[in-house]
């Protein structure tokens, strides 16, 4: 069996276009993890995230020939995922408070504290957990665009330029949307009695 693990995404795509199934499988193997992670942060439910990630790969497969090799596969695929998440939100409204939040119910085993957090006293630790829970709730109140932009920037750590490519809007719009999303989160936190001084 061929080993494609050293091949670049671009090369894998060329092989997949030529109907090399193993090359496409390598592409799926390589990108399914982060893709699923991105989607689950967006839609909340594991099952829905699985579905959307699957659908995204189907779209990749169907459009392999259209992939422009001067762009990164990662950005292209992110864009497909982003659009599917936005579609999902449009269809399902904003009812996303589901399993992912359950996962984020701060089971201590699931969250590995940083060195600083380990030294925190229990009271402060509880407070932090409450803040993070509220932040998750705040995210769920955002519009699809705002939520996505927060995820892309704060969780995926992307530059404005990359976000602009994925969301297909100018860099200035990214900054503006990001700022509004952040303000909404802060407003939500304040409404629930939290201020920056309490964190």
């Amino acid at each position: 069996m061929k080993d494609y693990s050293e091949y670049s995404d671009s090369k894998l795509i060329n092989l997949a276009v030529a109907k090399d199934e193993l090359a496409f499988k390598e592409l799926v193997s390589r990108h399914r993890g982060w893709a699923f992670g991105f989607v689950i942060k967006n839609v909340g439910q594991k099952e829905t995230a699985w579905d959307i990630t699957q659908e995204a790969f189907v779209r990749v497969y169907k459009n392999l020939e259209n992939f422009r090799h001067d762009a990164s596969f990662n950005t292209w695929f992110h864009r497909i995922l982003y659009n599917l998440c936005i579609d999902h939100w449009r269809k399902s409204g904003r009812k996303i408070k589901t399993e992912y939040q359950d996962e984020l119910s701060w089971d201590k085993k699931r969250i590995s504290p940083t060195g600083d957090q380990r030294r925190e006293n229990p009271e402060k630790s509880t407070k932090r957990r409450e803040v993070l829970e509220l932040l998750q709730q705040a995210l769920e109140t955002l519009s699809a665009q705002h939520r996505n932009i927060i995820i892309l920037r704060e969780m995926e750590g992307m530059s404005y330029q990359k976000i602009a490519k994925i969301t297909d809007c100018p860099k200035g719009t990214v900054m503006s949307r990001l700022h509004h999303a952040r303000k909404k989160i802060i407003e939500f936190m304040k409404k629930h009695g939290y201020s920056s001084s309490e964190i």
Binding site: R32, G33, F36, G37, I40, K41, E103, L104, R110, I111, S112, V131, L132, L135, Q136, L139, I150, E154, M155, E156, G157, R182, I185, I186, M189, S196, I199
Partner: peptide
């Protein structure tokens, strides 16, 4: 709050 949001990302998601 931006720092806190980044902490949400530290929660592992199973591949």
């Amino acid at each position: 709050f931006s720092q806190q949001l980044r902490e949400l990302n530290s929660i592992p998601v199973q591949t």
